[in-house]
Simulated assay, not measured.
Amino acid sequence: MTSPQRKKPRVAVVFGGVSSEHSISCISAGSVIKAIDPDRYDVVPVGITRTGRWVLEDPATNPLELGPQGALPSVVGDIEVALAPGEATELQVRERSDVPRSLGEVDVVFPVMHGPFGQDGTLQGLLEMMGVRYVGAGVLSSAVGTDKAVMKRLFTSAGLPVLDYVVVTPREWARDEAGLRARIDDLGLPVFVKPARAGSSFGISRVDTPDQLDAALEEARRFDPKVLVEAAAVGAREIECGVLQGVGAGDHTASELAEIRIDAEHDFYDFEAKYLPEENTALDVPADVEAGLAGRIKELAVAAFDALDVEGLARVDFFVFDDGRVVLNEVETMPGFTDLSMFPRMWAASGVDYPSLVDRLIQLALARDVGLR
């Protein structure tokens, strides 16, 4: 007697969104969708438009990748869908002229979302309320991982090293502009001015002279009213490390390290250096780092992962100075998954290829409990 065939887990890959990182999310999702084994999983691509509509997307007709001359993709689907709670949460097609039509249960969501209103705990909170398992960090660590200012406070409270910084909020600027300017002056020059809750290097400026500060603040405020002004890590190497959550009670695992070497044409690791072909950026994977120092960086990466109570995965970024000092820059709870992204490259160098990495993340999500944990 033939046993009934077991249903494949259904994975809804959710991407796009209303943040400035909409297109980067689409590119990352395109790579993730290609990597998921269709023999093991039923994959449903769900795009969120720039206006917040949830739609079915078809990568066959809308390639989720960079186009000619670096043209950026967008979510363009027109079949609206929604998550519907019940004994088992399901996807439903919502058509104005008809009753909702079920597309079946959702076992796990892979939220390939970057930036506010997706990576910052908002989507994770929705999924928690729906009782749906999902890949990656929970509500709190997603929110803290998106807010660089709060992240640095948690690092400091955990005894982890960070660069000196000043947080500029609209309320504080209105109340004590002179005091904030004095604190920024104390950081010295150069400084970097960046939106506190944006990514992909959007809105970041390097300030080398005092007269550049106001324009840099305005540029950052185009993306976020909350701004971080940070001392520059002059002459430091930029080193990154990937962390994967341990299985069961197992310890978290740190990847091989990577180093970003920026051409003099770029002041920092900006959007073009990150996502366009590597004409001006060298990415060394694995990085050429002495064994003792590499071990210390990996330990700090796991400590940062724990300090933010991250689940699933994270990319941890560091500055390493000539005197051996190691300083945390930030933790990315949903790092880029494009073909040029460092997180998959680091794990490939560690013996975990792209499809295996995606599969492990899905399996980690399927194995964890819903609700408080």
Rank of each mutant, 00 (worst) to 15 (best):
M1L: 12
R6C: 14
K7I: 15
V11F: 03
V11L: 06
A12Q: 05
V13N: 06
G17M: 12
S20K: 06
S28L: 10
A29P: 02
I33S: 06
K34L: 05
A35G: 07
D37T: 08
P38T: 14
G47M: 09
R53L: 14
W54V: 09
G67L: 05
Q69H: 13
A71W: 05
V81L: 04
A84E: 15
A88G: 13
Q92G: 03
E95P: 01
R101Q: 12
S102H: 09
L103Y: 00
L103K: 04
L103P: 07
D107L: 02
D107Y: 06
V108E: 08
P111K: 05
D120S: 11
G125V: 02
L126N: 07
L127K: 08
R133S: 10
Y134M: 12
A137M: 12
G138A: 11
G138V: 10
S141Q: 08
K148G: 01
K148M: 08
A149P: 03
R153M: 10
S157M: 15
A158V: 08
A158E: 10
G159H: 07
L160V: 11
V166R: 00
T169C: 02
T169G: 00
P170G: 00
R181Q: 04
I184T: 00
D185S: 13
L189A: 00
V193S: 00
A196P: 04
S200I: 06
S200H: 03
G203C: 02
D211R: 07
Q212E: 15
L213H: 11
A215K: 14
A216G: 04
L217R: 00
R221T: 04
R221Y: 11
R221F: 02
R222D: 09
F223V: 08
K226V: 13
L228Y: 01
V229F: 00
A231I: 07
G235F: 13
R237V: 13
E238D: 05
V243Q: 08
V243P: 04
V243S: 04
G248Q: 06
D251L: 06
S255G: 12
I262Y: 05
Y269H: 12
D270E: 10
E272C: 03
Y275G: 10
L276G: 04
P277V: 01
V285S: 00
P286E: 14
G292N: 05
L293N: 02
I297Y: 01
K298F: 01
E299V: 03
L300N: 01
A307L: 01
A307S: 09
V310H: 01
R315F: 04
V320T: 11
F321M: 08
V326Q: 03
V327F: 02
V327H: 01
L328P: 07
T333E: 01
D339S: 14
W347F: 07
A348W: 08
A349Q: 03
V358F: 11
V358T: 08
R360D: 06
Q363V: 12
A365Y: 06
L366Q: 10
A367I: 11
R368G: 07
D369S: 15
L372N: 06
R373S: 15
